[in-house]
Nucleic acid binder design. Structure first.
Length: 275
DNA sequence: CCGACAACCTGTGAGC
DNA sequence: TGCTCACAGGTTGTCG
């Protein structure tokens, strides 16, 4: 589930309930997700000073009494989600693997497929691989039409795969990569280095538009984040082409096609999206 | 450099 | 009802 918008909505949902509070206890009910969880107890006794995001990773910033920082990088994989509860919090359900207890409030992580990961680090995770190797954030002002164009010029791989690998802009997973290409009217198999300048401009604009409207849609459910309906933000998601094989294109009515690109389902309108 | 493929897991829905 | 199969929003590693 979690592409950039879902992580951002999670960040905004968690922050007001947790910032400034101190971790009183960590409970890991599994030994590992995608990586081992034995580093988690290292945040006990630390105060959460900030909750940030880089690409699809939630970055928890902690401080001790001396102001020394520790970071927790949380990646939610395919099926991860966070919720917060106040005491008395509900009984642990299946697939709820981790509790970060902040006194009378708990942040609880659920992840049926366990593709997520959590790593405690004594350096900012954004400064070390793999995060340090990623391309720019979509809403970073340093990302311009021409820097985007220059990045796409570097590879002959299909533009959709480049969107997914985050080298030119981060945040698009399979849903939003499909949606952005539809919005920009660009064929997903078009080689990245063959996009015209206007196409690049349209694509960057489309990525920003698709991601920000998804954040807005998820943001509308933020008031419910604290409690049983938490993290429900992205279930109302409306798509134009994703998972709509055979359905009419919302612009021209041509049936949406599905192909496989880099082992991922790829949906597009064969008439609206040009090579 | 690139693409193809497998792996990590569980859940869900389609088809029989 | 129950079986089997394909497939799922992500990432990482290997191999040719």
């Amino acid at each position: 589930m979690p592409e950039l918008p879902e992580v951002e909505v999670t960040r905004r949902g968690l922050a007001p309930h947790l910032i400034g509070k101190t971790v009183t206890e960590v409970v890991a009910r599994v030994g590992a997700l995608r990586g081992f969880l034995d580093c988690l107890p290292n945040i006990e006794g630390l105060r959460l000073v900030s909750l940030e995001r880089r690409a699809k990773v939630l970055i928890w910033v902690f401080e001790n009494d001396q102001g020394a920082r520790t970071w927790l990088a949380s990646h939610m994989g395919m099926s991860g989600s966070w919720r917060v509860y106040d005491r008395p919090w509900p009984e642990v359900q299946k697939h709820e693997h981790v509790d970060l207890v902040f006194g009378d409030t708990v942040a609880r992580y659920r992840d049926p497929r366990r593709f997520g990961a959590m790593t405690v680090m004594d350096a900012d995770p954004r400064g070390v691989p793999p995060l340090s190797r990623l391309g720019p954030e979509p809403f970073d002002e340093a990302l311009t039409e021409s820097s985007f164009f220059n990045n796409l010029k570097k590879t002959h791989r299909s533009v959709k795969q480049v969107l997914l690998d985050g080298s030119a802009v981060v945040g698009c997973g399979n849903i939003y990569a499909n949606e952005a290409l539809f919005d920009a009217r660009i064929h997903p198999t078009k080689p990245a280095d063959r996009l015209s300048r206007p196409q690049c401009a349209r694509l960057l604009e489309a990525v920003r538009k698709v991601l920000s409207s998804a954040i807005e849609a998820g943001g509308s459910t933020l008031r419910d984040f604290h409690g049983a309906d938490g993290a429900s933000g992205w279930f109302a998601l409306q798509t134009s082409v994703y998972d709509r094989e055979g359905e009419p294109c919302p612009i021209c009515g041509t049936p949406i096609r599905r192909i496989v690109l880099g082992q991922r389902s790829t949906y597009f309108c064969p008439k609206c999206q040009k090579k």
